[in-house]
Design a protein around this nucleic acid. Sequence first.
DNA 1: GTGTTTGCAAATAGTTTGCAAGAAC
DNA 2: GTTCTTGCAAACTATTTGCAAACAC
Lengths: 143, 143
Amino acid sequence: MALENQELRKAGLKVTLPRVKIYQILERAGEGDHFSAEDIYKILMEQGEDVGLATVYRVLTQFEAAGLVSRHHFEGAHSVFELARDEHHDHVVCVKCGKVREFSEPKVSEILDKVAEELGFSITERTLYLYGTCKDGCEDDKA
Amino acid sequence: MALENQELRKAGLKVTLPRVKIYQILERAGEGDHFSAEDIYKILMEQGEDVGLATVYRVLTQFEAAGLVSRHHFEGAHSVFELARDEHHDHVVCVKCGKVREFSEPKVSEILDKVAEELGFSITERTLYLYGTCKDGCEDDKA
DNA sequence: GTGTTTGCAAATAGTTTGCAAGAAC
DNA sequence: GTTCTTGCAAACTATTTGCAAACAC
């Protein structure tokens, strides 16, 4: 139970209720789950925690700065967050149901590294999002 | 001079001063030039045109819907626009100087199509942005 | 003329910030 | 006890919308 506390301390952040709770929510997420600040805020409310939305934003920003989470901007709207993992991965987003799938293709990274090399760029980050629709049952429940 | 008028008509848009002027600004852009609504608004002001910022947004949105321009969201901030071209291309963005380079790698598209296939997704669009820094002279003039 | 488009001001969505009160160490 | 953190309300940024006046055709 104190595992997340270690993570927080390691990141130079004091162990406070909002940070622990938010970290736990992110930890519980399955692959492909991404939360917006608002999502997290709502979950906290449901859990009866008294945490302000502004704090959720602040904590997520701190987590991002500490490398604990990564932030994504799917289709322009709000940001969503997920716990950072070691292996880089890219995202497929269904524009109908909002579902997100992840994938990782070493060959793509390889090619992009070469492109950067040729252009004289030193890449620090990339975003690769595929938008489309699930072919299988995909109820338009973009809640 | 009436070429852009043709484009507008083809898109089902009446030929009005704001639309023509905005189209011309986009047309003048070199490869890698991307304008935000604000950029375009400022250029119009400098040219002495009396066009509202809201109109710039409306026109750009209409152009996008008509397939005349594509919209990009580089690093979260505001949207930028460029005239749509036939060949798909991806972007490299320098986070120091803001410069944008374009590239196109058929092999990447090929791999991504395969990924989508395997995941049972039907891709309609993708965004692939590489962020980093120019290795050569790149004055931090991210104006 | 009639329907579209525009400019302006006000509204909106997502996110950030100032500040005094409260918690961590 | 001192410094970091929080909650709230207010500010901010990018963008959108309502509406009456102006324009395209």
